[in-house]
Simulated scan of single mutants.
Amino acid sequence: MMNLLATLILGATLAVSGCTYYGYPPGTAIPASYDRSFFAAADAMRDQDVVVSTQDQAGGTVAGQREGTSVTATVRQQPDGSVRVQFSASDSRDPGLLDRISRSYDRRMGR
């Protein structure tokens, strides 16, 4: 009886070890989750020295200031399941700020 059980366990182990998991095909983007996108947006703003004063995950808003400029990120779940993230600023004292925040966000999302 013991030999039969050992043979069955060995057979099952060999059968499972022959399975291969391929994951996502190369070049396919992994869909972003709302939570991951929200926190990446907030951290991207901090990366660019924005002092975050409001971080409302349920409302999808992150707001802060950098050298007198108000910066806001809005995160919205789309009907198709994708997530849309948009950064905006109150003025253009630093015209490259939003671009830098966007690049920080892309890095944090692995893009």
Rank of each mutant, 00 (worst) to 15 (best):
V75F: 08
N3T: 14
A6M: 13
C19L: 12
V52N: 04
S104N: 07
D99C: 02
A6K: 15
T74S: 12
G18R: 08
T28F: 07
A40D: 07
G23R: 11
V71G: 00
R108E: 00
M2L: 14
E67Y: 11
P95N: 05
F38M: 08
G27I: 04
L98M: 08
V50K: 08
D91C: 12
V83N: 09
A15E: 03
R36G: 06
D35R: 10
D49F: 15
G18A: 12
I101Y: 04
D56P: 06
M1C: 07
M45C: 03
P26F: 06
Q77P: 02
V71S: 00
V50I: 15
A63D: 06
V71H: 01
Q48D: 14
P31F: 04
V51M: 13
Q48R: 14
D35T: 14
P31I: 05
P31A: 10
R93D: 12
F87M: 05
T7Q: 14
Q57S: 09
G81R: 06
A63H: 13
V16E: 04
S92Q: 13
L14V: 09
S88L: 09
Q77V: 11
S92H: 13
L98T: 01
D43I: 00
Q86T: 15
T20M: 12
S37C: 06
L97K: 03
D94C: 05
M45D: 00
G81K: 05
R108A: 00
R76E: 12
Q57K: 13
A12P: 02
P79T: 06
T20Q: 12
R76Y: 10
T54W: 13
G18K: 07
D91P: 02
F87T: 01
V50W: 15
V85I: 14
F87E: 03
P31M: 04
R76P: 01
A6C: 13
V52Y: 12
S102H: 08
S37N: 07
A15T: 11
Q86M: 15
R36P: 04
R46A: 08
A29L: 13
S33W: 08
